[in-house]
Simulated assay, not measured.
Amino acid sequence: MRYAILLHYPEASPEELGDALAEGQAAFQAYARDLTDAGVLVSGEVWQPSSATTTLTAGDGGLRVQDGPFADTRDQLGGQFVVDVPDLDAALAWAEKAPSVWWGPVEVRPSATHVESGSWVPST
């Protein structure tokens, strides 16, 4: 079963993070290596800051494109790891090892379907 491990945390500039930036990068590198070594990593993404976001909304007869995120929270969705594990307990065990669990919420969400070779495949 595929699960997305969604990482939410406060955003900070490299200057604000200082030495913690290198420590965080090393922690995420180790986490990705552990997922890979366990054979459960499907993909991983750490995203640009939310200020780089472009949001699309449809309504009132048209499409609206706006710069910026529109989440009203100090924590932003900063990245995700997709894992393929037997069950929720296994996904939670990996999620609790995500370095950002100490900085903000880590959400675990099961996949309903995914794309493989251009076709939708139900997750099982």
Rank of each mutant, 00 (worst) to 15 (best):
Thr124Gly: 14
Gly62Ile: 01
Leu88Arg: 14
Thr53Trp: 01
Ala32Phe: 13
Leu17Trp: 07
Glu11Gly: 04
Pro99Trp: 04
Asp34Phe: 04
Ala30Gln: 15
Ala4Phe: 07
Gly18Trp: 01
Pro110Gln: 03
Thr54Phe: 05
Ser111Thr: 15
Glu107Phe: 00
Gln80Phe: 14
Val65Trp: 08
Val46Trp: 13
Lys97Met: 14
Ala32Asn: 09
Tyr3Arg: 00
Pro14Asp: 02
Pro14Glu: 08
Asp60Gln: 15
Glu11Lys: 08
Arg64Glu: 11
Val85His: 02
Val83Pro: 06
Ser43Trp: 04
Arg109Cys: 03
Ala98Asn: 13
Glu96Ile: 07
Glu107Gly: 04
Leu17Arg: 13
Leu41Tyr: 06
Ala90Ile: 03
Trp102Ser: 14
Gly61Thr: 06
Arg109Glu: 02
Gly44Gln: 15
Arg33Asp: 08
Pro69Asp: 12
Gly44Trp: 02
Glu11His: 05
Glu107Thr: 11
Lys97Arg: 10
Gly79Cys: 07
Trp102Phe: 15
Gln80Lys: 14
Ala30Trp: 02
Gln48Cys: 09
Tyr3Trp: 07
Ser119Tyr: 13
Gln25Val: 11
Val106Phe: 11
Gly118Thr: 01
Ser123Met: 06
Leu7Val: 12
Phe28Val: 12
Glu23Cys: 07
Pro86Asp: 05
Val108Pro: 02
Ala71Glu: 13
Asp89Phe: 03
Phe81Met: 10
Asp72Leu: 14
Val108Lys: 00
Ala91Gly: 07
Ala95Lys: 03
Pro105Cys: 01
Glu45Pro: 01
Trp47Ala: 11
Trp120Ser: 11
Gly24Leu: 15
Ala91Glu: 05
Thr57Leu: 14
Asp67Met: 06
Tyr3Asn: 00
Ala30Pro: 03
Tyr3Pro: 02
Gly44Phe: 14
Asp89Cys: 02
Met1Pro: 12
Val40Trp: 03
Val115Ile: 15
Thr36Arg: 10
Gly79Ser: 01
Ala38Trp: 01
Gln25Leu: 12
Ser50Pro: 07
Val46Arg: 15
Ala93Arg: 01
Gln29Ser: 10
Thr73Ile: 11
Ala90Val: 00
Ala38Lys: 05
Pro14Lys: 00
Asp87Gln: 00
Tyr9Pro: 03
Ser43Val: 02
Gln66Trp: 07
Val42Asp: 03
